[in-house]
Design a protein around this nucleic acid. Sequence first.
DNA 1: GGGTCTTGGTTCAAGTTTGAAACAAACTTA
DNA 2: TAAGTTTGTTTCAAACTTGAACCAAGACCC
Lengths: 174, 174
Amino acid sequence: MTTRWLTPEEQRAWRAYIAATMLLEDALDRQLQQEAGMPHIYYSILATLSETPEHRLRMTDLAEQLKITRSRLTYAVARLEKDGLLRREGCTSDRRGSLAALTDDGLAVLERAAPGHVETVRAHIFDHLSPEQVTQLEEIFTGITKGLMGDGPGDGQGDLPWLRRSSTGCAGTG
Amino acid sequence: MTTRWLTPEEQRAWRAYIAATMLLEDALDRQLQQEAGMPHIYYSILATLSETPEHRLRMTDLAEQLKITRSRLTYAVARLEKDGLLRREGCTSDRRGSLAALTDDGLAVLERAAPGHVETVRAHIFDHLSPEQVTQLEEIFTGITKGLMGDGPGDGQGDLPWLRRSSTGCAGTG
DNA sequence: GGGTCTTGGTTCAAGTTTGAAACAAACTTA
DNA sequence: TAAGTTTGTTTCAAACTTGAACCAAGACCC
């Protein structure tokens, strides 16, 4: 079948998206590198852990929530552990499993960096958007995400990791 | 001043954006790695060159158009040159300058990969969007980009590189 | 119990990106 | 024209990411 090229409108939207994404990632990384000594995705790891009741999560759950590979997460967690911001724990109920658990230091770093991070996000994004545009933003990217998650390996239906297994089944030390 | 945290709506939008962006970058990189043996940004370098009349551009112009650092571009161009997909040329009118020029091989690779790339972009994005959403997407990200470009080093006004200097001032060999 | 398959996670080597420092040509100014 | 400054680009070392290969533990099957 002959290629369905992008229309001029689509091209403009696509280029605008790419440009903004590049600049935004850069701005977030720079800000967090300055104020927390780590790139954005590392900060997100800490933030995600802090949102669970036990402040800990299995590696695979963490990776799937953040949409990164397990390999990438392994290295990131190793670095954060070396810095004392989180700790690894074995999983008692499934001895293959590993948990990443936020330390007090990690939580402190997170709380110190959060205001600056939020301010950056707000300044670069939400200050430019009307409430309707915020809604549009969510709808657009939720749809895209759904499409991208159905594609991957899996059955395309029950593939959402947080529906598959209890993440807290291992957090017995809390 | 006390932190202006994100509202629940903003949080949802932000998370949707982050998730989609991660998955999308992955999907594009994987597709282009498969079909063209290079990551998305490398493909974009070739694509950008192909859009100029002379199929060549100065390093700084290329970097600014793609929103990447000059350092990153230097390494990427070195790799692409090693692969024979582009060639470096000196700039005659300003002997500090370097040009990257698309080779015939580079153009061939680009043309072979383009349909698959466009199809991926379409399948993952535009197939999920109404025409109104395409317009919204452009407006939202154009605004964000403008904000991010005003911030950086520069006077915040005439800082658009393509208005500063003729890029073709060096392309004398065409 | 002994195969086999799957799942959770790490490791390896190669490739990519980063930010700062270095370099060189052009511009400015005295 | 000899500083000193700015601009265009590369280089360096360290950090990060990738995909494939690997290992170990659970699950399944007879």
